[in-house]
């Protein structure tokens, strides 16, 4: 264990895991209760298009993915509004487009030995100190916003219309939420990968709501669950020699299924 933590890349991975556990633990609650889970799936997949753009133009994929995700969130909203289709349909159209675009762009940039699976499923060897600092920065911004805006976001999540009438600036808070969603997804890209990250958006709150019927409890249990599956999953993956992201998501989902079954059996 000690020697494991002496490995630079592994230490970085552990640090990021802790940060992600807190971020997803809190954020998951809002995403799930606003029924935005599919938006999380959609936006995380569009990150692939953003990464490809970065590769094509020799820019940092982190920033291109972040900008691209934000841009995508806006476009998804507009397509739904002007195309008069549901948000989910719009997400469905857009996220496959963004992934296809990514695949085309990467092919255009030939001879590039690009770690495709690393971005899709995560690769902790790719974590640099830059990633640690951005994750830490995001955590600070996030905790600041949550500390001050928590109750407004709660109101908005519960009852958007009445929140508007009562003086909550829905547009601003929605924008902040979208920005945070995009940022969290991009920060966790190297850890769990574009395809798997959406599991972390939905699992913690789903697990938490098995154990508590109050938002405080749901969030705390979500964080505990995350520490268990993200940090724990990282160590497990090392010993089983399995990919970390996939290990986290597999074990997390299994834990959720088992808890859910236990709970419904106990209820009878």
């Amino acid at each position: 264990m000690i020697t494991l933590l002496n490995l630079n890349f592994f230490r970085n991975a552990v640090l990021i895991s802790f940060i992600l556990s807190i971020l997803f633990g809190i954020f998951s609650f809002f995403i799930v209760s606003r029924k935005m889970a599919f938006l999380g799936v959609g936006i995380s997949h569009t990150a692939f298009g953003g990464v490809a753009l970065g590769i094509l133009f020799n820019l940092n994929p982190f920033f291109t993915a972040l900008v691209f995700c934000l841009f995508s969130a806006i476009i998804i909203g507009k397509v739904s509004k002007y195309g008069k289709i549901s948000l989910n349909t719009s997400i469905g159209i857009y996220f496959s487009f963004a992934m296809a675009l990514g695949a085309v762009l990467i092919k255009l940039k030939q001879n590039y030995n690009f770690d495709l699976t690393g971005y899709l499923f995560g690769n902790i060897l790719g974590i640099r100190s830059f990633d640690i600092w951005t994750a830490l920065g995001l955590l600070m911004i996030f905790l600041f916003l949550i500390l001050f805006f928590f109750n407004r976001i709660l109101f908005l999540t519960f009852d958007e219309e009445v929140a508007t009438i009562s003086g909550v600036s829905v547009g601003l808070l929605d924008t902040i939420m979208l920005f945070l969603l995009a940022a969290i997804i991009v920060v966790s890209m190297k850890m769990v990968g574009i395809i798997l990250v959406s599991a972390l958006v939905v699992l913690p709150a789903s697990f938490g709501s098995l154990l508590s019927s109050n938002y405080r409890g749901i969030i705390w249990w979500g964080i505990v669950f995350n520490l268990f599956i993200i940090v724990g999953g990282l160590f497990l993956s090392y010993f089983l020699k399995t990919p970390p992201g996939a290990t986290m998501v597999t074990s997390g989902t299994l834990i959720y299924f088992i808890s859910m079954t236990v709970k419904s059996v106990m209820r009878r």
Binding site: L154, F158, D159, V168
Partner: peptide
């Protein structure tokens, strides 16, 4: 089924103010 208690619901109005 939103996970709040009665007092939480009424408090929301105060926070918004």
């Amino acid at each position: 089924n939103f996970p709040v208690n009665v007092e939480d619901v009424v408090s929301m109005s105060r926070y918004a103010q």
